[in-house]
Design a binder for these strands. Structure first.
Length: 440
RNA sequence: CGGGGUAUAGCGCAGUCUGGUAGCGCGGAAGUUUUGGGAACUUCAGGUCGCAGGUUCGAAUCCUGCUGCCCCGACCA
């Protein structure tokens, strides 16, 4: 992609409304634009990252055996009255009426709807287990949105729902999602810790929050340093196998958010020097909630014993849009963003230091064509900006590799490859550089 | 939802106290010279001063009401 044809509105100065670093960098890098408090347009660069994050979530959900569908953003109030949640949810729920004065709402979550879908088709335990999920925009009318996309009112979320005949089977679904979450965040280069958590207004009796440790996090968290070094299951993990040992390994060390933190237990179960007290950003949550929705909504299935009973359910969320902000909180420096390769909007940025110089232009064109032909996502800065401005721009948007092409280097037959994360620079011939950028 | 701010050009701000032709920096356009870490000079364009009332010969400025946005707290994926 040529920058001259792209849409990348970079801001040189810090917008005053942005307090935390991810919000500031997303605005400056032209990723998002605020339309109202907690509501954003996703500009091309931001959208690419959002889609990459969503795709990783989707791949890992599918790998774990979950099935994707798509439910609407708008829901009928009557559906929520069946579970009593229309009244219970409070002003966080955005309520609207259609032209027929029917009461509707912009969904803050989808337990009620998925339960309605499930009960209208599934009658027998033979069709279980099932895990259904979708990736859809939600709306919660937060009293005070802040931190950019980390706590917006409109947000993109992956929510999965499990359906099982009994509690033992439901625990298996819980474990599947738990393990798949370990992989999702690891693939984004994030060290995420599952912590015991409160269940909140969605309810339930078992829950873990998946937390990124960050000084700028929203809540205080406490954990044993040992959880930082636990192994992540690789892609050969068998989701039909016994996952309980993995879950047990990850949940036996102390890790809790402030809501459920117990200072005495923390002191007792951890040793001096192994205690971490910091702040965290929640990026995912898993719940087991049993028949909380199936019972009031009469979502019954017939078991092997011929007896009808409500299914046992769980729900499993990942804050997809929030993750984009969280990724920046975890990966940046003074100059800007440092994208992990798996979610970077482009893998390579080419800086043409002297647009109009025949040799420099030709080298850049060759590099661009070779990389694009190899399927490498590449952004070519062909603007007339001065070199310093191009360097600053590339550092800001944080692409993993920068290919710096100027007349001085080309005179010696070399271009420079800079690795954004380490700052390391190597000088290579054009052909070597092409090979290196494709291979890395 | 309590407390505190703020609203003037695309962005960041001054001007408001003490009413009298709307300013600065960055950014944008044109040109010249530049060209390896956010260039210099010249010229130009760009604003119903958040909205609605009021006071006044005259309001960005004073008064009243409303709204948006931000920060702290409570709340929350």
């Amino acid at each position: 992609m040529r920058l001259s044809r792209y849409f990348l509105p970079i801001l040189r100065e810090n917008p005053k409304e942005a307090e935390i670093v991810s919000h500031r960098l997303m605005l400056r890098a032209g990723m998002i634009r605020q339309e109202a408090a907690g509501i954003y347009s996703w500009l091309p660069l931001g959208l690419k990252v959002l889609q990459k994050v969503a795709e990783i979530v989707r791949e890992e959900m599918n790998r774990a055996g979950a099935i994707e569908l798509l439910m609407p953003t708008l829901q009928l109030a009557d559906l929520w009255r069946e579970t009593g949640r229309y009244e219970a949810y409070g002003p966080e729920m955005l309520r609207i009426k259609d032209r027929h004065e029917r009461e509707m709402l912009y969904g803050p979550t989808n337990e009620d709807m998925i339960t309605a879908i499930f009960r209208s088709y599934v009658r027998s335990y033979r069709e279980l287990p099932k895990i259904l999920y979708h990736i859809q925009w939600k709306f919660r009318d937060e009293q005070r949105p802040r931190f950019g996309v980390m706590r917006g009112r409109e947000f993109l979320m992956k929510d999965a729902y499990s359906f099982d005949v009994d509690e033992a089977a439901a625990r298996l679904a819980y474990n599947r999602m738990f393990v798949s979450y370990l992989r999702i965040f690891a693939r984004m280069g994030l060290r995420v810790i599952p912590m015991r958590a409160e269940t909140g207004p969605i309810g339930g009796d078992q829950s873990h929050e998946f937390i990124i440790l960050a000084e700028t996090g929203e809540s205080a968290v406490y954990c044993d340093a040992g959880v930082l070094n636990l192994p992540i299951p690789d892609e050969t993990i068998d989701y039909d196998g016994d996952l309980a040992p993995i879950v047990k390994q990850w949940t036996s060390l102390y890790a809790a958010t402030e809501d459920v933190h117990d200072a005495e237990r923390f002191a007792r179960e951890t040793t001096e020097g192994q205690r971490i007290e910091t702040r965290g950003i929640e990026v995912g949550q898993v719940f087991f909630f049993g028949d909380k929705y199936s019972k009031p909504m009469n979502a019954n299935i017939t078991g092997p014993d011929g007896v009808e009973r409500p299914f046992q359910g769980g729900s499993y969320g990942v804050g997809v849009s929030r993750l984009v902000g969280a990724l920046i909180e975890a990966n940046h420096d003074e100059a800007g963003i440092i994208w992990p390769a798996s979610v970077a909007p482009f893998k390579v940025g080419i800086a043409n230091l002297k647009v109009g110089d025949a040799a420099t232009d030709a080298a850049c064109e060759k590099l661009l064509a070779a990389l694009e032909a190899a399927g490498v996502d590449v952004l070519y800065d062909d603007s007339a900006d001065r070199p310093g401005a191009k360097f600053a721009k590339l550092d800001l948007i944080g692409l993993p590799y920068q290919a710096i092409v100027g007349p001085k280097g080309l005179a010696e037959g070399r271009i420079e490859i800079k690795t954004r994360a380490s700052g390391e620079r190597v000088e290579l011939s054009l052909d070597e550089a092409i090979k290196r950028l494709i291979a890395s």
